[in-house]
Computed example of a mutant assay.
Amino acid sequence: MSPQQKHRAGFAALIGRPNVGKSTLLNALTGEKIAIVSPKPQTTRNRILGVVTRPEGQVAFLDTPGIHQAKGELNRYMVEVALTAAEEVDLVLFLIEPPAGETPDVSPGNRAVLERLQKIGKPTFLVINKIDSIPKQQLLPLIELYRHQFPFAEVVPVSAREGDGVEHLYATVLSHLPEGERLFDEDMLTDQQERVLVSEYIREQVLRHCRQEIPYSTAVMVDVFDESEREPRPGTPPGQLGGLIRIAASIYVERDSQKAIIIGKKGQMLKVIGTDARKSVQRLLGAHVYLDLRVRVEPRWSERPEGLKKLGYE
């Protein structure tokens, strides 16, 4: 950093409709898998912090649930999480994806989000994600269309999946943040506790392997996180998994029929979910993992405030 440059720091929220790639972008910005990703809507349920620290500054990005027409307690909770995050940050990154047709348009859902952002009144970037999915000549009309809808401070096209434009986005965000010292320690990446990340990694595999109706009714709670044998044995080569962590977790659903789907015939589906979850959790924790999964029924938990509280959504 040159003597003329000032250190900058602040918060930026990733806001947008479901499935526009907010979590993929957070992972691309941080260079680590902090947020789980799936093609199913409403995968992200809480705000997730990802901190990117460079010599010239520090940006604390907040990934948020997709803003949608909320029906039911869980959906209202998720939308409230997103809008509250937008109110508390220095900068909002409004993510969209290119429309399916050749003629650009602003969807009713995106118009509704822009109306809420107008009321919040924070400086806002338009971040067009998935630009690898359209011809470049379609990009300019889309930008012009959205510029007529909202006074965006910047427009930044990116492909979070390919990494295209991600560094430029970070630099542009940083240039709009206030001068100041770091908000978090230099080595901090996220405020998510390991057991929370573990529960999300397990839920990711449920989303990946189970039928369409299951994800909306699924929550995961880690019941046991035993690190007493975590220390690697003397002589363990660098880069290899260390000791052993014993984890027991419960997958909650709302109906017996959903429980049967997750368990599968002769327990095969639960075995597949457990095997893939264990592999991803081992990479996260850098240790061998013994993972015990149980499936439990909590009727209508996503519709009841006490159900949300019990399963950690409060």
Rank of each mutant, 00 (worst) to 15 (best):
I262Y: 02
A160Y: 08
I245R: 03
I273V: 10
M221P: 03
E306W: 02
R211H: 11
I245E: 00
A85W: 06
L183S: 10
I131G: 01
E32A: 11
G286H: 07
T30M: 04
R182L: 12
I273D: 04
P99S: 12
G50C: 04
K71A: 14
P55N: 05
L62S: 10
G109F: 09
I15A: 00
S133V: 15
Q149S: 15
C210M: 10
P41N: 14
G57Y: 13
E102K: 12
A35P: 05
Q240P: 05
I67H: 01
E73A: 10
P41C: 09
D132F: 03
T30P: 14
G66Y: 05
V155M: 04
Q268Y: 11
C210E: 12
P151L: 01
P99L: 09
W301D: 02
I263P: 06
G109Q: 12
G50K: 14
Q192R: 03
A277E: 08
K265I: 00
T236F: 07
L177M: 15
N110V: 07
G267E: 03
Y290T: 01
K259R: 15
I120V: 14
S175P: 07
L25Y: 07
I67E: 02
Q193W: 02
Y216I: 13
K310G: 01
V81W: 00
Q192D: 09
R195A: 03
G121S: 08
Q193S: 13
D164K: 11
V253N: 09
P178H: 15
E88T: 14
P178F: 14
I247G: 00
G21R: 11
V173R: 12
R182N: 14
S280Y: 01
R233A: 11
L140Y: 08
R283G: 09
E102L: 10
